[in-house]
Design a protein around this nucleic acid. Structure first.
Length: 271
DNA sequence: CTTTGCACCTGTTGGC
DNA sequence: TGCCAACAGGTGCAAA
C-alpha cells in the first residue's frame, strides 16, 4: 500500500505522538517480517526516550540516544497510535508501548515490512547507504536525471523506480508522473532530451507533493482506534485505468508490463 | 559492473 | 456458490 506520500503522512502523524515519550514495553508478536525482528529490541528500547523521527526513501527512522529503530511498511503495512486497550487484530505484529498509555502498532498482512535496529548514524546502515537522492530534496532535478539516464537503454519507468537513481518513486507515481510529463513509460531512458528530463523531474516532485498534501488533510483522524489512518484515495490520470478513456483526450488507456509491473499510458498524450 | 527476474507473504478479485 | 489463478501500491538479492 504505502508509497512515499503515505510514508511521509505516517511520519507526520506519528511524530507528535512519539517524540519525547519513553518506551515502556516492546511486544514482538511476529518476528518473521522481511528480515527477523531483532529479539534484543525490548532490552534495547525499554526506558529509552524517542528523540526524533525521520524518513529516508520509504524507511521510517525513530531515533533514540543509543541508536535508530528502522521501520519499513513494505506493501501492506501501516503504523497507528492506539490506546493500550485496543484489541489486537490479525497481523498486528509489533507494538511499542509508551509511558502515556498509548501504543504505536505495526499492522502488516503481507509481512514485507521491516523492523530493524541500527547503532549510530542510520545513514550508514547497509540498506540506506547506497540509496539515491530524495525526490523532494535539492539534489534531485532535471540535471541529475539527465546525467543518470545517459547511455541507459532500460525503460524510463524502470529507471525512475531504481532506488539508486532517485528513491521513493513507486509504481503508482511513476505512472502518474510519466503521464504528466507526456513521456511513454517504455521509452529508453537514454533517449530523453535534457528538457524532457527537467519536465519529468518536476512532475515527479509535483505528483508526490500533491499526494502528500492530500494525505495531510486527513491527518486529524490519524490517531484513532479504528479506521484507516489517513490513506487517501485520489483520482489517477492513468494508473489502474487500462481500457478506460484518458481524462485529458479520451483515448483508451493502454496497459503494458515493464519489469513485471503493470504500466499504464495514453498513446495520444504520451510519446 | 549492470541487468533481469525471483522471492518473501496474505488477501482480494475475476473468470469459469 | 466454489475453486483457482492472477494480481496487488516494495525492493533486496541471486543469477545471468
Amino acid at each position: 500500500m504505502p508509497e512515499l506520500p503515505e510514508v511521509e503522512t505516517t511520519l507526520r502523524g506519528l511524530a507528535p505522538a512519539l517524540i519525547g515519550k519513553t518506551v515502556r514495553e516492546v511486544h514482538i508478536r511476529q518476528p518473521k517480517l522481511r528480515w527477523p525482528v531483532p529479539p534484543e529490541l525490548p532490552a534495547l528500547l525499554n526506558g529509552q526516550i524517542i528523540r526524533r523521527l525521520h524518513r529516508r526513501a520509504k524507511y521510517l527512522l525513530i531515533e533514540f540516544d543509543r541508536g535508530t529503530l528502522i521501520l519499513h511498511l513494505g506493501m501492506s503495512g501501516n503504523l497507528r497510535i492506539v490506546s493500550a486497550a485496543t484489541p489486537l487484530k490479525k497481523h498486528d505484529h509489533f507494538d511499542l508501548l509508551l509511558d502515556n498509555g498509548t501504543t504505536m502498532r505495526l499492522h502488516d498482512p503481507r509481512r514485507f515490512g521491516a523492523v530493524l535496529w541500527h547503532t549510530g548514524d542510520a545513514a550508514t546502515h547497509p540498506l540506506l547507504a547506497a540509496l539515491g537522492p530524495e525526490p523532494l530534496g535539492d539534489e534531485f532535478d532535471g540535471t541529475t536525471l539527465y546525467r543518470a539516464t545517459r547511455n541507459k537503454t532500460a525503460a524510463i519507468k524502470l529507471v525512475i523506480m531504481d532506488q539508486r537513481i532517485v528513491v521513493g518513486v513507486g509504481n503508482i507515481y511513476a505512472n502518474e508522473a510519466l503521464f504528466r510529463a507526456g513521456i511513454r513509460p517504455q521509452l529508453p531512458a537514454g533517449k530523453l532530451s535534457r528538457p524532457r528530463c527537467t519536465a519529468l523531474a518536476g512532475e515527479i516532485r509535483a505528483t508526490l507533493t500533491a499526494a502528500i498534501a492530500k494525505g495531510g488533510s486527513t491527518l486529524r483522524d490519524y490517531v484513532s482506534s479504528d479506521g484507516s489512518p489517513g490513506y487517501f484515495q485520489q483520482e489517477y490520470w492513468v494508473y489502474g485505468r487500462a481500457g478506460e478513456a484518458c481524462r485529458r483526450c479520451g483515448e483508451s488507456v493502454r496497459l503494458l508490463r515493464l519489469g513485471q509491473r503493470a504500466s499504464f499510458y495514453c498513446p495520444h498524450c504520451q510519446h
